[in-house]
Amino acid sequence: MKAFIPVEKNEGIDSKLDNRFARAGYFVVYDMESDKILSIEENRFKNGAHGVGIETGNYVIKSGCKLAIGPRLGPKAENILRAGNVEFYIAENCTVKEAIERYRAKS
């Protein structure tokens, strides 16, 4: 399973999670099976004027991720992820590594 994680800067596995989902600096796609970062891409939508949450939601769906980890989402983006059966786990103030650990540790 792939996880979608919004981060502030590209600092690999130690990148800090961004506290804004759709307007985050970078998006990390993480492979939970091989425990590896598959890609870190700059967020192209962050300065958009309309429906940035939806644009990001659409992007998550396209990325094929079935899990998203990050700060709380806006209602529209949340709606897309729900419609796309993407699991959502809230994590804030931590690194990618810590976020994955927290997700795995949850009961």
């Binding site: 958009g48 309309h50 429906g51 939806i54 769906i61 419609a83 796309g84």
Partner: peptide, 28 residues
Amino acid sequence: CGKCADACVYNALSIIPHLKKTLFYPDL
């Protein structure tokens, strides 16, 4: 195919291919 959602600069459409679902946000 998602072409319509890509073409929409106002992000008023979402296409979810693996579940064969479409979403439309009339207010946008």
